[in-house]
Design a binder for these strands. Sequence first.
DNA 1: GCCATCTTGTACTGAACAGTCAAAGATAGT
DNA 2: ACTATCTTTGACTGTTCAGTACAAGATGGC
Lengths: 203, 203
Amino acid sequence: MSGRKQFDVGVALDQAMRVFWQRGYTDASLDVLGAAAGLGRGSIYGTFGGKDALFRRCLDRYAATYGAQYEEALAAHSDDPVRAIEAFLDVVLARIADPSVPTGCLIAQSAAQSAILGEESRGHVRTLLDIQRRRVRGALAAAPADPRVLDELAVFVVGINQSLAVLSRAGASDAELRSVARLARTTVADTLARAAAGEAAGG
Amino acid sequence: MSGRKQFDVGVALDQAMRVFWQRGYTDASLDVLGAAAGLGRGSIYGTFGGKDALFRRCLDRYAATYGAQYEEALAAHSDDPVRAIEAFLDVVLARIADPSVPTGCLIAQSAAQSAILGEESRGHVRTLLDIQRRRVRGALAAAPADPRVLDELAVFVVGINQSLAVLSRAGASDAELRSVARLARTTVADTLARAAAGEAAGG
DNA sequence: GCCATCTTGTACTGAACAGTCAAAGATAGT
DNA sequence: ACTATCTTTGACTGTTCAGTACAAGATGGC
């Protein structure tokens, strides 16, 4: 059949992404991935190359989809780093609460399974996490504080994201996740306030 | 051969535990588990029953080993909740820095993979996480604050534990992990301080 | 309308998997 | 010393896996 693709690559990636997201790399078999995306093996190999390559395309799809939401949330509060972080975490909470997608986070899931991924995929995950860290760091850049403190806060916020992902997987309630995010927000606020006071006093 | 067990169950569990810890449930094959523990398939099935049961025994072994360390750390500072949490997180950091065991955390890894575990194992992971939460909650019990605030802080600290596990898996440096733990410590300290002030003012 | 080119479905391959089984051998109670 | 009982070894089962090969069929340029 066919001389031209019978499916939309983006839609197929969305479906495959959900399978990897739900099951993780190893437990997402090509049969299940194909069934979810509506693709036969030939189409998967012809279009993407193989399971590893498909996985990385799904990682990119995920990063692009939610990365855009993160950017938007951070940009909406470019004048207020604390509110920017709050909006950032709200995106995470909303995704976790969304019943149409798996809980947790594909990147966090993949990071946790890092040890069993191939060299290339492992590097890919690290890169995507680093992009997320830089994104958060960028939102903090305007705050009057020691750059090293801002670096630490960026890692902290990325870490909170992972913790929300794992906790949600373990069955934590929405209220619990929200309280974690709220506490993280106050940490950022207090740390920035202290740093600003320190800057004013010190130099 | 043999009419009595040829191996120490505890030692075998320690070895199998490391394999599950490193690779996760699915990617820990019985062949690799057996090779690591020095057991044939017959011994595994005869002693533990099967892969699922072995996995849960390993979860318990892990919980007992590090649970004891957590208890000790918390008990050593029963007069000061903030220092207790600090000591608790130091146990996590020390384990992650220990080159003789995998990075991350078996419970966190298992929680992230919760979706592909059987009903029984999934419940087991949740139970162990809940024990950890109660443990932290107990260390905070003496603090003069609204119990609901203490509940939230306990979930927060457990979440930080998970975030350290995932971040370390993704290749974060020891310095980064320590800064995350330090920020979490200030979260607990500031929150308790505010709660104490609120208690004093409110009633 | 013809043909080179691409896509797709299906069947196949060899490997890895969890779990079962029976035979061989060691132990301990008598 | 005999024997019932247990452990261990290694082979075997049927299934599932990722990846490959190929034939059938559709497309679009000419």
